[in-house]
Design a binder for these strands. Sequence first.
DNA 1: CGTGGGGTTGATACAGTTCAAGATACGTGG
DNA 2: CCACGTATCTTGAACTGTATCAACCCCACG
Lengths: 229, 229
Amino acid sequence: MRESDFDVVRQLPLFCDMDRAHFDALLAAAHLQRLPKSTNLIHEGDLPDFLHIVVEGAVELFAESHGRETTIDILRPVTTFILAAVIRDEVYLKSARTLTQSRILMIPAKAVRDAFGRDAAFARAIVGELAIRYRSIVRVLKDHKLRTGVERLANWILTSEQEQGGRGRVVLSYDKRTLSARLGMSPEHLSRNLTHLAQNGVVGNGREIVITDRGALQRYAKADPLIDG
Amino acid sequence: MRESDFDVVRQLPLFCDMDRAHFDALLAAAHLQRLPKSTNLIHEGDLPDFLHIVVEGAVELFAESHGRETTIDILRPVTTFILAAVIRDEVYLKSARTLTQSRILMIPAKAVRDAFGRDAAFARAIVGELAIRYRSIVRVLKDHKLRTGVERLANWILTSEQEQGGRGRVVLSYDKRTLSARLGMSPEHLSRNLTHLAQNGVVGNGREIVITDRGALQRYAKADPLIDG
DNA sequence: CGTGGGGTTGATACAGTTCAAGATACGTGG
DNA sequence: CCACGTATCTTGAACTGTATCAACCCCACG
């Protein structure tokens, strides 16, 4: 593992307060893997072997049941995932795959649980991390139950635009098929919804989406800080 | 607070390992309130004053946005709620109200955060509790995104029947209106779905639902341990 | 009794999916 | 650099799941 990556991980809220020796032990047991696009990382129903951390790239969390599949969330660096399963040593409830080439840090689950039992600062940091994850999934749930597809899209455009610097345009970092899954709609519906938003200040053009009338879009989206964060 | 209630709380996984003195301090600052049906306990957007615990009765977690409302979960004793907001000292993302007359233990948020900082065993117990809550909401999300309304109903009947002793019948402890909200459908739709299930081994009769053909119902429901727990 | 709330039933409308076909962009080999 | 084949994206039409509105029923309760 590169020195710079080591530092990035060390500075994560999850690790920055823990005892140096415990941290070193944790990372000594860990692997940093560079993985190609569309690699399956974990599969729901399995018992956790590793705590995963997206260091670079993008990871999709999804779930299947009887032939149906749904995207739960898309994670960007630097984020832990399946922490709850590791802590409880219970089966994963979701699966994960890379969406782009990614670098994933994998820390053996047992090492995490050991450090958790031994290092109080680490235990407290895990609480913070879990609470963040919990609140994040509550937002996802509200987004899906309180909004229609077009509204989710409108709000996604607004928040993505902010993340990308507020220049009035959003560039997709994955294909529209994936975006439609992330927004919980079929690819066809995303396409239609995008044309529908043309009347509300948005123009789509390939992988670029341009906001032509932010006021109109905001009025239409009805953003809610308790959903969009 | 009654002696027996004190013991019940002390024995919760969240508290049983913590230092006796810290526990006493926590409870000294707490109130146990008996509240009538339909009392609002917390409102989304407010900052947390108390950690709440359902000791008796039933509590509905719900959320609103721009005139729409959705039920997130229904909690039965003994369960904590809004722990994540208390720990992070951030606004509630959901609201809560009693569904029946209930007894709710309220522990001042500051006292919880103090104990959390001072008592490592308590911090670890909070991790366990948060991980359970997290996994529970993932199941709720999967239930809604991977199933139709009728399927949710069928699975709800099966798990409720197990909880009520596996005697082939389920008795509702709240009205159908509330159940329909819990299942994420309109009251009309619940009614229709229930008659639809008549062909699949279920007979509804007022507040009682009887399973006449468990095999047929199970086949229809396609239960999934990664959703129903 | 009458009144009202919860529940059912019917008719209609909307959101979203699916299937099928056409359009557009995109990387590869010639 | 172009032609081709494949991916992805869009468009259209039919269909499923669910919501909404309205009428009605039933029973509990004043």
